[in-house]
Simulated assay, not measured.
Amino acid sequence: MRNVSCHLLAFTFLSFATSASAQMPGAGGPPPVGVVTVTETAINETTEFNGRIEATDKVNIVARVSAFLEEQLFTEGADVKKGDLLFRLERPPYEADLEAKAASVAEAQATLENANIAFDRADQMHKSGSGSQSTLDNALATQRTSAAQLRSAQAALRSSQINLDYTEIRSPIDGRIGRAAVTVGNVVSASSGTLVTVVSQDPMYVTFPVPTRKLIEFQQKRTSGGSEGLRLRLRLPDGRIYDQTGILDFLDVSVASDTDSITVRGAIANPVIHNGQRELFNDEFVRVIVEAVTPQKVLAIPRAAVLTDQQGDYVYTVGADNVVQIRRIKLGQSTAETATVLDGLAVGDKVVAEGVQRVRPNAPVTPQLLTTQLATKG
């Protein structure tokens, strides 16, 4: 009786194990895999380049005359306006020279007035027959010489006035001023070099080299999308995406022979964000993101579904009979999460996205539809 009970217990356990094995996916049957259905998604295609910020206007301030530097009238690193007085040089020597030139003009005017009187007298005597032609000719020559001397004296006066004006050095543009290279008390002149630099702040330029092959693509997008076919975004040195967008506004005239690339320039706003500060600085290194304005429809699948071998990229597709096939694909622009497919798949195809390690070509699987939403740029 005891043996019968043991046999019955063993038979019951075996039956239960067999039934459980039949219900467990992958235990003796096709392995379970997660699949996604290929869909069409609209994305804004982007390309990144290394770029550098440049001020639209940059002025190196230099002295135009030689004199002692008497005053510095700005705060280093502050914003300045066009016409603001930056430096004042020693003025007395130039004021004295201006007075001397003014005296020379007055003297030349008096000489010309006397020459005019002498010419009029000689002309009247010649007309009355009491004066000679040579006397009239000499009076005319003296008059013309005096007029020329007056013009020369007036030109010297203007030159002296210009030199005096140069003792006040003003900002030629609106912008931000840098550090002064010369301190008060030094003698400065045109040969002293840059006293200080002023750079404009808003907008700013960003320049970056683009391979000629990629440039052709950009030009096609601009043609199809008009002047707004492309826009610029910036990735700042800390990794953040700058919140302003820019436009392409300049293409260099020559291709760099060593890199087969051409310099492209864009313009982008640089507004004040807080406490008078701005985010973009002259000569700052950034990543330039060139983005197509018009979204492009592409086929998108999870990046995890894409495999690579010596022949290139491929995916596993599942047919109506749940049999796996290898499908060679051509990828477009992709992210860490999403791959865009240019060729090899069609809308509605089912692609293995999970459990690819359990898949064998031409073998059956147990597909389970995934509903994970793809992350795309748009």
Rank of each mutant, 00 (worst) to 15 (best):
H274C: 02
P237F: 07
A139P: 00
R278T: 03
Y314S: 03
T37K: 04
F68Q: 05
P32K: 07
V290C: 14
V298F: 07
Q109L: 14
E70T: 09
Y316W: 14
T56P: 10
T308N: 13
A269V: 01
V38C: 12
G348A: 06
L8W: 13
S192M: 02
S171I: 12
L345T: 04
D252T: 02
Y314G: 01
R158E: 08
A96T: 15
R303S: 11
S261C: 00
T167D: 09
R328Q: 01
V290F: 05
G26V: 00
L234Q: 09
P32L: 01
A269R: 08
T56Y: 09
I173C: 08
A346N: 14
V315I: 10
V196Y: 00
K297I: 15
T18H: 08
Q23T: 13
E107S: 10
A300F: 05
V359M: 08
V80H: 00
L374D: 08
A346H: 10
R231E: 11
Q296A: 13
Q296E: 09
D313S: 12
Q154S: 15
T142M: 07
G129V: 11
F218M: 15
D283R: 07
V255P: 10
G26D: 01
H126M: 05
N44T: 06
L14W: 04
G51L: 07
T111W: 00
Q109K: 10
I53Q: 14
R327S: 11
E54G: 01
V182N: 02
V198T: 03
S254Q: 08
A115W: 06
Q311H: 03
V187Q: 14
L215A: 09
I273N: 04
V199R: 07
R328S: 03
A78V: 01
K101E: 15
Q133V: 10
I216L: 10
L280Y: 06
Q368R: 09
D258C: 09
L8R: 12
